[in-house]
């Protein structure tokens, strides 16, 4: 889909599909794995993150000319943490059931790398309207991913969907899918399926952290996923220290290898 850059619709599509924070950028893994024991919990977590993300991006974008560059990280943290505290109170008051089952993961939205990443990479530079819709898009993308993961785990692991029985009576639920190992297993499979679809579509696989300092390692990249996994992470702290000098050459080499004929302009530009 070719859409004009930084328009509301493009931002939303970008968040849900092109740069889906979970499936493409591999950001925000902690809540993704921890809160998807059921579809409802996943959607609840996704929506509360979306609200915080959207509001934080809006405020940060509005304040982007006031916040001094050197103080921006603490300032962002305070903005994000304030919204998290508000959402925490609102959920305690209005959705006590969900509040109880999400537990500690609500205050932990503060350290969700998606929010900090978008604040640093997008909202700190862009106009408020674009930042607002970027927040909605990314938040929706996160919600969709959590909903998918939660649905798969709930249906296989408990035989229910949003609490309703959906499997035939003879089906014995595979309990391990709602326990901790199921989260890892289902996410691994979903990302593998996404990769398969992308390979099929002639695109390179979205993620490959075993390659260390190339795209997909967004969780350690100081670009925080802004590049959409298309550029190598030149500012990867650990990788750049582990392989100080030949890093750039190695990166360029490893980057050119993966599947698909679209070893594209962005990569060249990135080098």
């Amino acid at each position: 889909m070719n859409l004009k850059k930084d328009t509301p619709i493009e931002r939303i599509w970008n968040g849900i599909y092109t740069e889906n924070p979970v499936f493409c950028l591999i950001l925000g893994m902690c809540p993704t794995l921890a809160t998807t024991t059921s579809a409802l919990n996943g959607v609840g977590m996704g929506l509360s993150t979306m609200i915080i993300l959207t509001l934080a991006e809006l405020i940060i974008s509005l304040l982007r000319k006031i916040i001094p560059d050197r103080m921006r990280m603490p300032a962002y943290i305070v903005v994000i943490a304030s919204f998290v505290t508000m959402v925490d109170f609102l959920m305690e008051g209005f959705t006590p059931g969900l509040y109880k089952s999400l537990g500690i993961y609500i205050p932990l939205i503060v350290v969700n790398c998606i929010i900090m990443g978008r604040a640093e990479a997008y909202a700190g530079k862009m106009k408020p309207v674009s930042a607002f819709f970027d927040g909605i898009g990314m938040g929706l993308g996160f919600t969709v991913a959590l909903f998918l993961l939660g649905s798969v785990r709930e249906i296989i692991g408990a035989g229910t969907w949003f609490g309703m029985k959906v499997t035939p009576a003879s089906y014995v639920p595979v309990n391990i899918f709602v326990l901790a190992p199921g989260a890892f297993l289902v996410l691994g499979w979903l990302v593998a399926i996404m990769n398969r679809l992308k390979i099929g579509a002639g695109r390179r696989p979205g993620v490959d952290p075993t390659q260390g300092n190339m795209c997909g390692d967004c969780m350690n990249c100081m670009k925080l996923g802004l590049c959409g996994g298309k550029e190598e992470c030149t500012e990867n702290v650990v990788a750049s220290v582990n392989a100080p000098k030949p890093a750039v050459a190695a990166v360029a080499g490893s980057n050119a290898s993966p599947a698909g004929g679209t070893v594209n302009k962005e990569e060249v530009k990135g080098v």
């Binding site: 890892f184 297993l185 691994g188 499979w189 990769n195 993620v207 490959d208 952290p209």
Partner: peptide
């Protein structure tokens, strides 16, 4: 297998480790 390279296989390894820690 190609689609599993990188992140997915690490996830599945973690799943097995998680089972072991049970």
């Amino acid at each position: 297998p190609k689609p599993f390279k990188g992140f997915p296989i690490v996830m599945i390894t973690s799943a097995l480790m998680s089972i072991a820690f049970f």
